[in-house]
Write a protein that binds this DNA or RNA. Structure first.
Lengths: 192, 192
DNA sequence: GTCTATACCCAGATAGAC
DNA sequence: GTCTATCTGGGTATAGAC
């Protein structure tokens, strides 16, 4: 699906994904996507019935990207502790994007939280992908009954960091926070 | 300005403030504000040249509300430690709004971070109001050189909580997080 | 100061030729 | 499957009567 990107449908989804991230869903028009892809507006309706359908396809695409990232964490190390640390380091790997556009999941969720309920649930599902993965890793380490609450706390800390780093466009804060989260997590995980 | 709300300009600003919070700036039209206030669309241009001008007025209004809230913290106690704790408790006082619409400053910032630079700076100034106040209180307590970094960390934790509480519409998480932040802050402040 | 009528544009969406 | 031409609605913004 994402690797080739040869056909028009994939081109539309990937261009929309990027434009929604940079400019927001509501601020992205069919014309913008048409210009980016070179595909004329009218053609979109052959692949998608409505703009919301494009959004749904984009959210599917993002959930695919999240799964790829989680796989990458698992390929980076066989040790759950290391995998979790590596996940947190995404703050650094995606430094530039976060500073300029925020967290792709968080900003989209915040935008759509002011929309219809079905859309809200679809984005919440993206967070849930991440959260469940984190919870699973924590369970493996031995945090059985605290795993769920801790998974929320980890997500919460990362979100706070991305929001403020984006608002202030502050790279130093982002780096400092990432380091701090890693330290906190390391101590937490080793004391178990 | 806010107390009376007798004249049309104030009515427009206050209705816009609420609508921008609930539905987002880009998703709020002049018609929406007209319907809410009972003032016809065309009349708006007597008070504001453009929609962005209304936004600017709303941001001014919010900065006024923030200052009111900070004053309330100072009236609640003469002790900076207590004032900071009371500030964190806003998560509980504004529970319903946060669950449904997120943090009024954070969600607006995130939305406008995908807009023009001048607008971004205006919202960032709202965060700065809060941050500077927190920094000042921390300095009074004695965190001289750490005060700035800590003020960012406090804001960051609160933001993370509001984003996730909103995305998941999870009151229990919000309450649990608020309690946790208070504990963390209490220990931090007392060890100084 | 207040309100109505309306201009103008661009959004999402459709019809139908090729 | 691809593309052009076009419709319709709602958005911001204006002109001008009262």
């Amino acid at each position: 699906m994402s690797q080739r990107g040869s056909n028009n449908r994939d081109k539309i989804v990937q261009a929309a994904d990027q434009l929604f991230y940079v400019n927001g869903y509501n601020q992205t028009s069919f014309s913008d996507i048409a210009e980016e892809t070179g595909i004329p507006r009218g053609n979109f309706y052959y692949y998608f019935k409505t703009k919301d359908d494009i959004l749904t396809a984009v959210l599917d695409y993002r959930s695919h990207l999240i799964e790829e990232m989680l796989k990458a964490c698992e390929q980076h190390s066989a040790e759950p502790r290391e995998q979790l640390i590596y996940l947190v380091e995404v703050l650094i790997r995606e430094e530039d994007n976060i500073i300029n556009y925020g967290c792709p999941i968080g900003t989209m969720s915040t935008e759509l939280s002011k929309s219809s309920v079905p859309l809200q649930q679809q984005v919440a599902a993206l967070f849930e992908l991440l959260r469940v993965w984190i919870e699973k890793k924590l369970s493996l380490i031995g945090f059985s009954h605290r795993a769920q609450a801790l998974s929320m706390e980890i997500l919460s800390r990362l979100q706070g960091t991305t929001v403020l780093a984006n608002v202030y466009h502050d790279v130093e804060f982002l780096k400092r926070s990432a380091k701090q989260h890693k330290q906190w997590l390391t101590e937490l995980l080793c004391n178990n």
